[in-house]
Amino acid sequence: MKLHQKGFLLITICKSGGIWDQQLINKVFAEYDESGDFREKSIRITLDELAAAGLVKRTDNKLEIINGKTKLIFKYQISDFGITRMVDTGLLLP
């Protein structure tokens, strides 16, 4: 069975050392065979939740034109607290 999506996002961010949300969205789409605006927004909200809870931190940001629209994109990195929580919940081995 595949990992739940928020868990997959955390592991991908943790492994990357720092990753832009657009790349993360592509990885989630590939992993779960998903596509579309609605799913994309849903993943962005999940990233906002992770940042608000302090599990990931935003290390960079920029405005980029994607599909003709200016979008604010963020670069994410796992936080120390995020690592602790991943260990607590079995997403990462201690």
């Binding site: 608000a52 809870a53 302090g54 935003r58 960079d60 607290f81």
Partner: peptide, 14 residues
């Protein structure tokens, strides 16, 4: 102030 809800002790990069 609502964007970061917890004092996680992580140094703020952004």
């Amino acid at each position: 102030s609502v964007a970061e809800l917890r004092d996680t002790g992580d140094s703020k990069v952004y």
